[in-house]
Protein backbone atom coordinates (compact mmCIF):
# COMPACT_ATOMS: atom_id res chain seq x y z
CA UNK A 1 0.00 0.00 0.00
CA UNK A 2 1.36 3.32 -1.01
CA UNK A 3 0.03 5.20 1.95
CA UNK A 4 1.61 2.73 4.29
CA UNK A 5 5.04 3.45 2.85
CA UNK A 6 5.34 7.18 2.45
CA UNK A 7 9.10 6.79 2.06
CA UNK A 8 8.88 4.18 -0.64
CA UNK A 9 9.58 6.54 -3.52
CA UNK A 10 13.08 7.01 -2.18
CA UNK A 11 13.56 3.41 -1.20
CA UNK A 12 12.34 2.18 -4.54
CA UNK A 13 15.56 3.16 -6.22
CA UNK A 14 17.18 0.34 -4.29
CA UNK A 15 16.38 -2.39 -6.73
CA UNK A 16 14.06 -3.01 -9.57
CA UNK A 17 13.12 -6.39 -8.22
CA UNK A 18 11.99 -4.97 -4.93
CA UNK A 19 10.23 -2.08 -6.56
CA UNK A 20 8.25 -4.53 -8.61
CA UNK A 21 7.20 -6.46 -5.56
CA UNK A 22 5.79 -3.30 -4.10
CA UNK A 23 3.39 -2.42 -6.86
CA UNK A 24 0.06 -1.76 -5.21
CA UNK A 25 -3.36 -2.32 -6.67
CA UNK A 26 -3.39 1.09 -8.36
CA UNK A 27 -0.09 0.32 -10.07
CA UNK A 28 -1.48 -3.04 -11.14
CA UNK A 29 -4.57 -1.39 -12.51
CA UNK A 30 -2.56 1.30 -14.34
CA UNK A 31 -0.48 -1.43 -15.96
CA UNK A 32 -3.59 -3.32 -17.03
CA UNK A 33 -5.44 -0.25 -18.29
CA UNK A 34 -2.45 0.97 -20.30
CA UNK A 35 -2.12 -2.48 -21.84
CA UNK A 36 -5.78 -2.12 -22.79
CA UNK A 37 -5.13 1.40 -24.09
CA UNK A 38 -2.43 0.13 -26.46
CA UNK A 39 -4.86 -2.55 -27.61
CA UNK A 40 -7.57 0.03 -28.19
CA UNK A 41 -5.20 2.29 -30.14
CA UNK A 42 -4.00 -0.69 -32.15
CA UNK A 43 -7.39 -1.98 -33.22
CA UNK A 44 -8.93 1.25 -34.37
CA UNK A 45 -8.36 1.33 -38.15
CA UNK A 46 -4.80 1.97 -39.32
CA UNK A 47 -3.18 2.76 -42.67
CA UNK A 48 -1.14 0.09 -44.49
CA UNK A 49 2.21 1.52 -45.58
CA UNK A 50 5.19 0.30 -47.56
CA UNK A 51 5.99 -2.77 -49.59
CA UNK A 52 4.82 -5.24 -46.97
CA UNK A 53 1.75 -3.24 -46.05
CA UNK A 54 2.62 -3.28 -42.37
CA UNK A 55 -0.09 -0.96 -41.12
CA UNK A 56 0.75 2.31 -39.42
CA UNK A 57 -1.47 2.49 -36.44
CA UNK A 58 -1.49 4.32 -33.19
CA UNK A 59 -0.15 1.12 -31.59
CA UNK A 60 3.40 2.48 -31.27
CA UNK A 61 1.96 5.70 -29.90
CA UNK A 62 0.42 3.67 -27.08
CA UNK A 63 3.70 1.87 -26.47
CA UNK A 64 5.65 5.11 -26.05
CA UNK A 65 2.89 6.67 -23.96
CA UNK A 66 2.99 3.74 -21.55
CA UNK A 67 6.74 4.22 -21.13
CA UNK A 68 6.81 7.97 -20.58
CA UNK A 69 3.57 8.24 -18.63
CA UNK A 70 4.04 5.28 -16.28
CA UNK A 71 7.84 5.14 -16.12
CA UNK A 72 10.13 2.28 -17.14
CA UNK A 73 8.91 -0.41 -14.73
CA UNK A 74 5.17 -0.06 -14.96
CA UNK A 75 5.33 1.07 -18.59
CA UNK A 76 7.42 -1.93 -19.60
CA UNK A 77 5.05 -4.21 -17.72
CA UNK A 78 2.03 -2.69 -19.44
CA UNK A 79 3.50 -3.23 -22.89
CA UNK A 80 4.70 -6.72 -21.94
CA UNK A 81 1.19 -7.60 -20.78
CA UNK A 82 -0.24 -6.32 -24.05
CA UNK A 83 2.20 -8.35 -26.17
CA UNK A 84 1.68 -11.51 -24.10
CA UNK A 85 -2.10 -11.27 -24.27
CA UNK A 86 -1.90 -10.74 -28.02
CA UNK A 87 0.42 -13.69 -28.49
CA UNK A 88 -1.94 -15.81 -26.42
CA UNK A 89 -4.57 -15.21 -29.06
CA UNK A 90 -6.52 -12.05 -28.25
CA UNK A 91 -6.98 -10.19 -31.56
CA UNK A 92 -5.44 -6.98 -30.23
CA UNK A 93 -2.49 -6.41 -32.53
CA UNK A 94 -2.95 -3.98 -35.40
CA UNK A 95 -5.40 -5.27 -37.97
CA UNK A 96 -7.20 -7.44 -35.36
CA UNK A 97 -4.42 -9.97 -35.49
CA UNK A 98 -3.34 -12.05 -32.57
CA UNK A 99 -1.80 -15.37 -31.66
CA UNK A 100 1.64 -16.87 -31.83
CA UNK A 101 1.53 -16.64 -35.63
CA UNK A 102 2.53 -13.01 -35.33
CA UNK A 103 5.94 -14.19 -34.12
CA UNK A 104 6.47 -15.87 -37.47
CA UNK A 105 5.31 -12.87 -39.47
CA UNK A 106 7.49 -10.08 -40.81
CA UNK A 107 6.46 -7.62 -38.11
CA UNK A 108 7.57 -9.86 -35.22
CA UNK A 109 10.67 -7.78 -34.54
CA UNK A 110 8.63 -4.65 -33.89
CA UNK A 111 6.48 -6.51 -31.42
CA UNK A 112 9.43 -7.86 -29.49
CA UNK A 113 10.95 -4.40 -29.41
CA UNK A 114 7.86 -2.74 -27.93
CA UNK A 115 8.27 -3.61 -24.23
CA UNK A 116 11.99 -2.84 -24.35
CA UNK A 117 11.37 0.47 -26.10
CA UNK A 118 8.75 1.48 -23.53
CA UNK A 119 11.22 0.76 -20.75
CA UNK A 120 14.02 2.71 -22.43
CA UNK A 121 11.76 5.67 -23.25
CA UNK A 122 10.45 5.72 -19.69
CA UNK A 123 13.93 5.48 -18.26
CA UNK A 124 15.29 8.26 -20.47
CA UNK A 125 12.32 10.51 -19.80
CA UNK A 126 12.66 10.09 -16.05
CA UNK A 127 16.42 10.58 -16.15
CA UNK A 128 16.23 13.70 -18.33
CA UNK A 129 13.30 15.30 -16.53
CA UNK A 130 15.16 14.94 -13.25
CA UNK A 131 17.80 17.29 -14.67
CA UNK A 132 15.57 19.81 -16.35
CA UNK A 133 11.98 20.88 -16.03
CA UNK A 134 12.08 23.02 -19.15
CA UNK A 135 11.35 21.93 -22.73
CA UNK A 136 9.23 19.12 -21.34
CA UNK A 137 7.73 18.16 -24.71
CA UNK A 138 11.15 18.25 -26.37
CA UNK A 139 12.69 16.08 -23.68
CA UNK A 140 9.85 13.59 -23.90
CA UNK A 141 10.17 13.50 -27.68
CA UNK A 142 13.89 12.89 -27.40
CA UNK A 143 13.29 9.98 -25.02
CA UNK A 144 10.69 8.39 -27.30
CA UNK A 145 12.63 8.92 -30.49
CA UNK A 146 15.87 7.57 -29.03
CA UNK A 147 14.11 4.45 -27.84
CA UNK A 148 12.52 4.00 -31.21
CA UNK A 149 15.82 4.48 -33.09
CA UNK A 150 17.81 2.24 -30.78
CA UNK A 151 15.28 -0.56 -30.33
CA UNK A 152 12.15 -0.54 -32.48
CA UNK A 153 13.82 0.05 -35.83
CA UNK A 154 16.83 -2.28 -35.42
CA UNK A 155 14.71 -5.12 -34.04
CA UNK A 156 12.02 -4.44 -36.63
CA UNK A 157 14.59 -4.67 -39.42
CA UNK A 158 15.92 -7.91 -37.93
CA UNK A 159 12.40 -9.30 -38.01
CA UNK A 160 11.94 -8.32 -41.65
CA UNK A 161 15.20 -10.09 -42.53
CA UNK A 162 14.66 -13.23 -40.46
CA UNK A 163 10.93 -13.80 -40.97
CA UNK A 164 10.27 -11.95 -44.19
CA UNK A 165 13.41 -13.16 -45.93
CA UNK A 166 14.30 -9.62 -47.02
CA UNK A 167 17.89 -8.63 -47.69
CA UNK A 168 19.29 -6.26 -45.09
CA UNK A 169 19.27 -3.34 -47.54
CA UNK A 170 15.66 -3.93 -48.56
CA UNK A 171 14.67 -4.40 -44.94
CA UNK A 172 16.21 -1.05 -44.01
CA UNK A 173 14.46 0.57 -46.97
CA UNK A 174 11.12 -0.97 -45.93
CA UNK A 175 11.63 0.09 -42.34
CA UNK A 176 12.61 3.62 -43.37
CA UNK A 177 9.09 4.11 -44.73
CA UNK A 178 7.92 4.15 -41.13
CA UNK A 179 10.36 6.82 -40.00
CA UNK A 180 8.31 9.91 -40.91
CA UNK A 181 5.21 8.43 -39.30
CA UNK A 182 7.34 7.52 -36.35
CA UNK A 183 8.58 11.06 -35.87
CA UNK A 184 5.00 12.28 -35.95
CA UNK A 185 3.86 9.63 -33.49
CA UNK A 186 6.72 10.33 -31.12
CA UNK A 187 5.94 14.05 -31.23
CA UNK A 188 2.34 13.19 -30.50
CA UNK A 189 3.33 10.91 -27.65
CA UNK A 190 5.46 13.68 -26.15
CA UNK A 191 2.66 16.25 -26.40
CA UNK A 192 0.09 13.88 -24.97
CA UNK A 193 2.37 12.74 -22.16
CA UNK A 194 3.08 16.34 -21.19
CA UNK A 195 -0.67 16.99 -21.05
CA UNK A 196 -1.22 13.88 -18.94
CA UNK A 197 1.60 14.92 -16.61
CA UNK A 198 -0.20 18.21 -16.10
CA UNK A 199 -3.45 16.43 -15.31
CA UNK A 200 -1.79 13.96 -12.93
CA UNK A 201 1.36 15.63 -11.60
CA UNK A 202 2.14 12.88 -9.11
CA UNK A 203 1.59 9.99 -11.48
CA UNK A 204 5.06 10.26 -12.94
CA UNK A 205 7.93 9.38 -10.67
CA UNK A 206 10.24 12.31 -10.09
CA UNK A 207 12.75 10.49 -7.96
CA UNK A 208 14.21 8.01 -10.38
CA UNK A 209 13.15 4.41 -10.79
CA UNK A 210 9.42 4.39 -10.81
CA UNK A 211 8.54 3.42 -7.35
CA UNK A 212 5.04 2.37 -6.51
CA UNK A 213 2.40 4.44 -4.91
CA UNK A 214 2.41 7.62 -6.90
CA UNK A 215 -0.84 6.69 -8.52
CA UNK A 216 -2.39 5.66 -5.24
CA UNK A 217 -1.63 8.88 -3.42
CA UNK A 218 -2.83 10.81 -6.37
CA UNK A 219 -6.15 9.02 -6.30
CA UNK A 220 -6.59 9.63 -2.60
CA UNK A 221 -5.90 13.30 -2.95
CA UNK A 222 -8.03 13.90 -6.00
CA UNK A 223 -11.16 12.17 -4.83
CA UNK A 224 -11.34 14.14 -1.62
Amino acid sequence: MSQAHPSSSGAAVASRRRARKRWNSTDLSLIAVFAALIAALAIVPGIPVGALGVPITLQTLGVMLAGVVLGPGRGGAAVGLYVLAGLAGLPIFSGFRGGLAVLAGPSAGYLIAFPLAAMLAGFLAAALLRRTRRFRVGVLFLACFTASLLLIHPLGITGLVVNGGLSVGDAIATDAVFLPGDVIKNLLAAGIAAAVHRAFPRLVPRTGADGPGHGGNEGAARTA
Binding site: M1, Q3, A4, A220, T223, A224
Partner: peptide
Protein backbone atom coordinates in the same frame (compact mmCIF):
# COMPACT_ATOMS: atom_id res chain seq x y z
CA UNK B 1 -18.76 18.36 -3.27
CA UNK B 2 -15.25 18.62 -1.91
CA UNK B 3 -16.42 18.85 1.71
CA UNK B 4 -14.46 15.71 2.65
CA UNK B 5 -17.26 13.12 2.55
CA UNK B 6 -15.41 10.61 0.39
CA UNK B 7 -12.23 11.05 2.39
CA UNK B 8 -14.14 10.34 5.60
CA UNK B 9 -15.45 7.11 4.08
CA UNK B 10 -12.07 6.07 2.71
CA UNK B 11 -10.51 6.55 6.12
CA UNK B 12 -12.77 3.85 7.48
CA UNK B 13 -11.35 1.07 5.34
CA UNK B 14 -7.82 2.41 5.12
CA UNK B 15 -7.97 3.41 1.46
CA UNK B 16 -6.88 6.78 2.75
CA UNK B 17 -4.74 6.87 5.87
Amino acid sequence: NGSGKSTLLKLINGLTL
